[in-house]
C-alpha cells in the first residue's frame, strides 16, 4: 500500500517545527512503527536525517511511543499503543498526519520525541508506599477483597505514556495522576499515606504546568490501557476530603 505521510519535524524545543511530506510503500502486516522504520531506512539511504521517535518494547507495555496519528495519540484503534497499531487499519492512498504529543509540560526534544519527565516527578511527589526493603509482613497477612484488588490493578495498568495529557485539550494529567492515586489508595497498604499523597501529587501536577480537568473525557478514549475517568472522580473526592480534614 502507498501512503502519504505528513510528519512533524522539529530540531529541538527552541526551534520552530513544520510538516514534511513523504510517500511510503508499506505492507498491511506492518505495525505503524515498522512503517516508520521503512521511512527512516530510506532517509538514511538518502543520507538524510531520519525521523526521531521514541519506542522500545513494541509490545504495548513500556509506554515509550509518543506519536499523535491523525490528531489522536496512538492512532485510531481503541485501546492500542502505536507499536501495536497495524497498517491494515489504513487504506491504500491514505494521507496520515503524524505529530508529537503536545502539552506544555512535555517539551519537544526532537521531531516526535518529547520529554515526559514531569510524570516521573509527579510519582516522586508521593506515588509510592513508604516501605523499606525488609520491613514487609507476610504477603497473606492482609487479605484484600478480590474486586478491590482488581480495581487497583485496573488503575495500576497505566503505562505512563502520556497519551492522556496529549489527548486532553486542556493538557491535563489528571488521568495519569488519579490512576496512581487510585491504585495505591484503594489498597489497604497504601491507605495510610493516602491523604498526604493526594495533596502532594495534585500539587506537583499543577506545578508541572498541566491543565485542569474539565471532564471532556478524551483521556479515557485515547488511553491505550483504557483507564477509566472513574479514577479522576475518586481523586477529586479524596482531594476535597483531604483539603477539608488536613491541618
Amino acid at each position: 500500500m502507498k501512503l502519504n505521510l505528513k510528519v512533524w519535524r522539529q530540531k529541538n524545543n527552541d526551534s520552530k517545527g513544520s510538516f514534511e511530506t513523504h510517500t511510503v510503500n508499506a505492507s498491511e502486516h506492518m505495525s505503524f512503527l515498522e512503517m516508520m522504520d521503512v521511512l527512516n531506512e530510506r532517509l538514511i539511504s538518502e543520507k538524510k536525517d531520519p525521523v526521531a521517535f521514541e519506542h522500545d518494547c513494541r509490545e504495548g507495555i513500556c509506554g515509550a511511543c509518543s506519536m499523535v496519528i491523525n490528531g489522536r495519540p496512538h492512532g485510531p484503534q481503541q485501546g492500542t499503543t502505536t507499536c501495536q497499531l497495524h497498517m491494515r487499519k489504513f487504506k491504500d492512498g491514505d494521507t496520515i498526519v503524524v505529530e508529537p504529543f503536545r502539552a506544555k509540560a512535555f517539551p519537544i526534544l526532537k521531531d516526535l520525541v518529547v520529554d515526559r519527565s514531569a510524570f516521573d516527578r509527579i510519582i516522586q511527589s508521593g506515588g509510592y508506599i513508604s516501605v523499606n526493603t525488609g520491613q514487609a509482613t507476610d504477603g497473606n497477612s492482609v487479605p484484600i477483597e478480590k474486586d478491590l484488588a482488581l480495581k487497583a490493578f485496573d488503575a495500576a495498568q497505566c503505562i505512563g505514556c502520556g497519551a492522556c495529557a496529549a489527548a486532553c485539550p486542556n493538557g491535563s494529567a489528571m488521568l495519569f495522576t488519579s490512576a496512581k492515586v487510585s491504585h495505591l489508595g484503594l489498597l489497604p497498604q497504601g491507605e495510610v499515606e493516602h491523604t498526604k499523597r493526594v495533596q502532594s501529587m495534585v500539587a506537583q501536577m499543577d506545578e508541572e504546568g498541566f491543565g485542569f480537568c474539565s471532564n471532556i473525557g478524551a483521556c479515557e478514549v485515547e488511553c491505550p490501557k483504557e483507564i477509566s475517568t472513574e479514577n479522576i472522580a475518586r481523586m477529586n473526592r479524596d482531594y476535597f476530603k483531604a483539603s477539608l480534614v488536613s491541618e
Binding site: 516501605v131 525488609g134 509482613t137 484488588a149 487497583a152 489498597l187 497498604q189
Partner: peptide
C-alpha cells in the same frame, strides 16, 4: 512480601489471599 507491601496488585482468591 516486599512487593505486596509496596502495593503490587497480585491476583487474589475470593477470600482475599
Amino acid at each position: 512480601d516486599q512487593c505486596v507491601a509496596q502495593g503490587v496488585p497480585f491476583a487474589r482468591e475470593y477470600g482475599g489471599l
